[in-house]
């Protein structure tokens, strides 16, 4: 129990460090739902990370993007009505990492996404486009992109966000420490291959108030230490 108290304290410290707020449009990010903002969002994250950290704020609107990489000290706040929309071509998920995702991070600390906004995976379109390219032989069967994939990160916090229409897993966390997932709504009911959260080799993970409606496994919990699950259910009301 003492450990958990320490962990809550750590989280609090982690969240309160970054004071600077940046509006998305400052970096040329456009809310029209058709401009692919990958370049600008990545520039924003890099810039904020290099300038002592802070929060990148998205107000109401649809923000189209391909893979972006979170960097230490950068939080993203999605205000109510803001939607981060994943691009629908698998080529837009072009990272070299083993577990691809719309939002990736490796070895970063003090990162997270919070607010009442949505991360929209465009799952059906992405799956269709992937299958088309596979049948032409243009791409090989590769790792299936998650909405969020974090490896070896510390002080990670995702709160309040709606994860919609992820093609495969919503969140994949490998080897992360001090993780808080709270008040998340993971909805993949329209995607045949949708799945929930994968925790692998993580330490000090708090899952609270989650609602997971997916077609495949809602939670994979492997080789983790100190995982707490509170008030978290599937669409059928079953505890995770």
């Amino acid at each position: 129990m003492k450990k958990y108290k320490l962990f809550v304290l750590l989280l609090f410290v982690g969240l309160s460090v970054s004071a600077n707020e940046y509006n998305a449009s400052f970096f040329g990010i456009k809310s029209d739902g058709i401009t692919n903002n990958t370049g600008s969002i990545q520039k924003a994250i890099d810039y904020i990370s290099e300038h002592r950290g802070g929060t990148l704020v998205f107000y109401v609107g649809r923000y189209l993007t391909g893979t972006i990489h979170l960097k230490s000290g950068v939080k993203i706040r999605l205000e109510e009505g803001a939607i981060l929309v994943g691009a629908s071509s698998p080529y837009d998920y072009n990272s070299k990492s083993a577990t691809k995702a719309l939002i990736e991070a490796d070895g970063q600390s003090n990162i997270g996404i919070y607010g009442k906004g949505v991360i929209e995976g465009s799952g059906n379109a992405l799956i269709k486009n992937t299958n088309d390219l596979l049948s032409l032989g243009y791409i090989r069967k590769d790792s299936e992109p998650a909405l969020v994939s974090l490896s070896n990160c510390m002080n990670v916090s995702f709160t309040g966000i709606h994860f919609w229409n992820g093609p495969y897993n919503a969140l994949v966390l490998n080897g992360c420490k001090t993780v808080n997932l709270e008040g998340l709504d993971i909805n993949g009911k329209n995607i045949a291959t949708s799945a929930g959260i994968v925790l692998n080799g993580c330490k000090w993970v708090n899952l609270k108030d989650l609602f997971v409606e997916v077609k495949k496994t809602p939670l994979v919990n492997l080789n983790n230490q100190f995982v707490t699950v509170q008030n978290s259910i599937t669409s059928k009301g079953i505890s995770l």
């Binding site: 401009t35 692919n36 990958t38 391909g66 691009a87 071509s89 080529y91 837009d92 072009n94 243009y138 791409i139």
Partner: peptide, 8 residues
């Protein structure tokens, strides 16, 4: 934006 598609 077709950058990734065309490059691939």
């Amino acid at each position: 934006l077709n950058t990734s598609v065309i490059q691939s």
